[in-house]
Design a protein around this nucleic acid. Structure first.
Lengths: 168, 168
DNA sequence: ATAAACTTTCAATATATTTTGAAAGTTTAA
DNA sequence: TTAAACTTTCAAAATATATTGAAAGTTTAT
């Protein structure tokens, strides 16, 4: 397989994975494009390369920046903005984990905490079933949350090293 | 907060979380409803309870069964099918991990493996950047895959115990 | 065989999400 | 200032996804 075709496949694969994980396809594709590009790209070049409109490119780049996955750069004496992706895979994983935790896990934890406080008689099967499910899910969600928190602070080699030691 | 309102909130929260994680809202809501229901429910009762159509209820229940989250039951002398959810949270997490691994992670791993085989000169920055990103992501994806595999076989208390021991 | 009781299918419809592109806004150099 | 070079916005259009509901299919008891 030649490089241009391989890049194309990578962009497609990353786009598909993204859309299965709540990040939209274009956003994941722009990210993928920047990941396989040595230097920086302008909005114009991204539009061209992925055949997307100016508005779409602009919004997508802003989203990627708000996720902390892409940064922009001003070159002295130039007016254009140049975009590049952080290419450190561990940083990417941490950044995604951080954002999803904040945007998705935390609001649910807040609701679950409230719901575990609902009172009722343990004789009532309706209440007992509700309470058990909510309490159990809340515990698991808190475990996930703590694990993510640790991951966010961790160094990659230490993290995987510990995981694999643990799993022998 | 009273029980019916709490149930409603739980169904909404689970629905929202589901739709952020690639499971559609209705599917997550039917699952949530079954999680807080002591016994089993018929299609009719689910339609009624969530105000959804017969077709939607039927398809959603089939999906939930294909994910291994819901089972059906025939009562002797009755023609209706009764549905219930496995209420063991650890089983739910494992089942979801198993399905997503199969449906999403594995196809991507297959492509990444191919892409790491693409040859080129390390003098060429285009190739070098492509190769590094693909290789790094492939390694991380494989680490995630191995971790999931271990999780699938593990007992809950052992799993979290080990995780928290590891994180001191 | 028949029909009642149920489940499944799927084309049409509704809803939600993404994308476009032209106009408005901003910045910079002269 | 002005105007060129760029970025941002957002209503309208396109696309993708989910839902409906009626018709077709299936199963079971008689």
């Amino acid at each position: 397989m030649e490089l241009p075709e391989a890049k194309q496949k990578f962009i497609e694969a990353w786009g598909r994975l993204g859309s299965e994980w709540g990040i939209n396809r274009t956003m994941a594709q722009v990210h993928a494009l920047l990941l396989v590009t040595p230097g920086e790209l302008t909005t114009e070049e991204i539009m061209e390369s992925l055949s997307i409109s100016r508005g779409n490119a602009n919004m997508t780049l802003r989203d990627l920046m708000s996720w902390g996955l892409v940064e922009k750069l001003h070159k002295a004496g130039e007016r254009k903005e140049y975009f590049f992706a952080d290419k450190n895979t561990w940083n990417i994983a941490r950044q995604v984990a951080k954002e999803r935790r904040k945007r998705e896990l935390e609001p649910v934890l807040k609701i679950l905490d409230e719901l575990t406080k609902v009172k009722g008689s343990s004789k009532d099967p309706e209440f007992a079933t509700f309470n058990k499910s909510v309490t159990d899910i809340n515990k698991m969600a808190k475990n996930v949350d703590k694990t993510l928190e640790t991951m966010l602070k961790a160094e990659e080699s230490w993290f995987w090293g510990s995981i694999f030691k643990m799993f022998k």
